[in-house]
């Protein structure tokens, strides 16, 4: 297992009138090398959960194991710096974390903090900028001259340059146009296929269906489900009760099935769907 949570509780501002119980008895095993979606409403505890993976937050009780590192309530954050490298966390709107005068300097900032030599870091930066779909000519430019979408690629390159084993992404496509979002998700899929564990927080069920293997559903601070994507979208009543929309393709299939068609609702490829409808109409 890559990420394991055992009876993890987290309460913000313990012993104050503002105390907030954000995680309640969370048990979770995320497989090494999987691409796992984390879904649930705003306030369901998703963002608290992902911050435990790189020890930005420590559990109030219970334990978190990230590969060979064990995190408990008493572990001091300084002994956990290696975790920040092991689990790269990309926050929502990561373009706001850029601050260096050139893109190169910003990308090598992370690796250098983890003790990579400048030379080595520059080499990595050159690879990363290409990985995120830009070219080396960008390295000497200021990150602040770029468009919003490009800035976000640079910020993500900065995290990938740390060469984390686990990549955690909080709504990485928020605000991007369809083409930009698609390219970004294909990048994460590629990174995942190269062996990294990817945890993707997303509100867009179409993305979850198309790109992820497993899905974790959070509700009121608890992990309610951890199933494969295909299994999740079978539970339409459960999803409706959480007012989570089905992927467009799934709800389309269900509509057709209500009216006499018999199509497998776990189809995620539109071409397969077209073949299937065609087949049933030509029978």
């Amino acid at each position: 297992m890559s990420i394991t949570f055992k009876e993890v509780e987290h309460t913000y501002s313990v012993d104050t009138p503002f105390a907030y119980h954000a995680l309640k008895g969370v048990n979770l095993d995320i497989k090494k090398g999987s691409m796992t979606a984390l879904i649930g409403h705003t306030g369901s505890g998703k963002s608290t959960l992902i911050q435990h993976i790189n020890a930005l937050l420590l559990p109030t009780s219970g334990q978190v194991q990230i590969e060979d590192v064990l995190i408990t309530a008493t572990d001091k954050p300084s002994s956990l710096k290696s975790l920040r490298k092991k689990a790269g966390l990309v926050f929502q709107f990561p373009e706001y974390q850029l601050f260096e005068e050139t893109i190169l300097k910003d990308i090598i900032f992370g690796p250098k903090n983890f003790g990579v030599s400048e030379e080595e870091a520059i080499k990595i930066a050159k690879d990363m900028i290409q990985l995120v779909g830009l070219d080396e000519s960008y390295l000497e430019r200021s990150p602040f001259d770029l468009s919003g979408g490009q800035k976000r690629r640079i910020a993500i390159a900065g995290i990938l340059a740390m060469n984390p084993d686990i990549l955690i992404l909080d709504e990485p496509t928020a605000g991007l146009d369809p083409q930009g979002a698609k390219e970004m998700l294909q990048l994460f899929k590629k990174v995942n296929q190269e062996g990294k564990t990817v945890v993707l927080v997303s509100h867009d069920m179409n993305q979850v269906l198309e790109y992820c293997d497993d899905v974790v559903v959070m509700n009121h601070g608890r992990v309610e489900k951890h199933v494969t994507v295909a299994e999740l979208f079978k539970e339409t009543e459960y999803l409706t009760s959480l007012s989570i929309d089905l992927p467009i393709i799934t709800s389309f299939i269900l509509e057709l099935n209500k009216n006499g068609f018999h199509i497998d609702p776990s189809i995620k490829d539109i071409n397969v769907l077209v073949q299937e409808i065609g087949g049933q109409l030509n029978e």
Binding site: I270, N271, L273, G278, L281
Partner: peptide, 29 residues
């Protein structure tokens, strides 16, 4: 979807509205 179906030789009007497409497909069915 409607474009793909036309390529398969199914006579269906091109649609951008899902609800209308569902209706038409169900009539055909």
């Amino acid at each position: 979807v409607s474009e793909g179906l036309q390529k398969l030789g199914i006579s269906i009007t091109n649609q951008i509205d899902r609800e209308k497409l569902v209706k038409e497909l169900c009539q055909l069915h």
